[in-house]
Amino acid sequence: MTILFPAARRAARFSRTLAIVAGVSTLLLAGCSNFFLGKENLAEAVDLPSNPAAVSFARQWRQTVGDGTDGKALGLRPLALKRQIFAVSNDGELMAFTADGNKNWARQTGHPIAAGVGGDGRVVVVGSENGLLMAYAADNGKPLWTYQLSSEIMAAPTVVNGLVVARAIDGQVTALDARNGSLVWKQYIGVADLSIRGNARALFFD
C-alpha cells in the first residue's frame, strides 16, 4: 500500500491525466500525418547533381612511425617544413621524411612523447609526458638541447623568431632560445578550475 500526501496525490492525478492527453494527442497526430502525408503526397526522391568542384585525392606514400599512441588522446600531428615532413610517436620515435616519402633520418628520444612536432626548418622540438623539451637539428636529427618544464606538455611547441615557446598543463608558459635552449622568459597564465586537457599550440601575431 502506498500512502501519498495530498500534494503528491494531486500530482499523481495530474500525471495520469497528462499521460492520457499525451497519448490521445499522439494518436491524433499519427492519424493526421497518414491523412495529409499519404503516399500520393510524398515528394519523389531525386538523385543529387554531380559537383564539378569536387576534389579527389590519391595516396602518394605511407609510412609508420613508432607503435601509435596506446589509446591516449594525443595531438601528435606531423609537421611539414621546407620539403621535409616530421612525425613523432608516443613511444619516442622521431622521424623525418622527404616530400616523396623516403626516410631522411630517425631518432629515438628515449621518452614517452605527449607533444610535437614544433619547428622552423632549422630545429624541431618535441615534449615528453614528464615535461622535458627536446630539440633536434632538422636536417640530420642531431640532438641539440633539452629543457625541463614544470609539468607535462600537451601542446606542440611553437618555434618562431628564434624562440621555442611551450606551455605546460599547469599553466606555465616558457620561452627558450632556439639555438641553445637557454631561458628567455617565463610566464604563468593559470588554469581554470574546471578545464579539460588540451593540445592547442600557441599562436603569434606581429
Score class of each variant (00 low, 15 high):
146 T>W: 04
25 S>T: 10
106 A>Q: 15
132 L>V: 03
169 I>T: 11
37 L>P: 04
184 V>Y: 06
96 A>Y: 05
20 I>P: 06
52 P>V: 02
51 N>D: 15
16 R>P: 03
195 S>P: 10
93 E>V: 12
107 R>H: 13
1 M>L: 13
71 G>H: 02
73 A>Q: 12
49 P>Y: 06
173 V>I: 04
168 A>V: 08
172 Q>V: 07
143 P>I: 01
63 Q>R: 15
88 V>P: 05
164 V>R: 02
173 V>Y: 02
165 V>T: 05
201 R>L: 11
26 T>C: 10
183 L>A: 06
155 A>V: 04
72 K>Y: 13
205 F>L: 15
136 Y>L: 13
201 R>I: 08
136 Y>V: 05
100 D>M: 08
38 G>D: 05
80 A>I: 09
197 R>K: 14
159 V>D: 00
62 R>C: 09
84 Q>R: 15
202 A>W: 11
13 R>F: 07
206 D>I: 08
125 V>K: 00
135 A>T: 01
192 A>H: 07
113 I>R: 06
163 L>P: 03
140 N>H: 14
101 G>D: 04
182 S>L: 01
174 T>S: 00
26 T>D: 08
119 G>R: 03
140 N>Y: 15
22 A>Q: 10
88 V>R: 05
95 M>F: 04
184 V>K: 15
93 E>A: 10
163 L>H: 11
106 A>H: 12
50 S>D: 13
200 A>L: 15
103 K>L: 10
34 N>L: 15
104 N>Y: 12
100 D>S: 13
105 W>K: 09
40 E>T: 12
100 D>C: 07
195 S>H: 15
189 I>G: 02
80 A>G: 03
183 L>Y: 11
139 D>Q: 12
65 V>N: 06
164 V>K: 02
197 R>C: 07
144 L>P: 10
160 V>D: 13
101 G>L: 05
56 S>R: 06
43 A>T: 11
101 G>Y: 11
152 E>C: 03
111 H>R: 15
48 L>Q: 10
205 F>I: 13
189 I>Y: 03
133 L>K: 01
83 R>T: 09
142 K>L: 12
48 L>M: 13
102 N>L: 14
18 L>E: 09
191 V>E: 09
42 L>F: 11
37 L>R: 13
168 A>Q: 07
120 D>R: 08
176 L>A: 00
94 L>N: 09
188 Y>A: 10
122 R>F: 11
87 A>C: 05
37 L>N: 14
47 D>Q: 14
148 Q>H: 07
71 G>A: 07
22 A>H: 09
195 S>Q: 10
154 M>I: 12
75 G>L: 06
179 R>S: 08
71 G>P: 04
30 A>T: 12
136 Y>P: 02
29 L>W: 10
95 M>A: 09
28 L>N: 07
58 A>N: 13
20 I>H: 14
105 W>I: 06
88 V>K: 07
23 G>A: 12
139 D>F: 08
68 G>D: 04
154 M>G: 14
204 F>D: 09
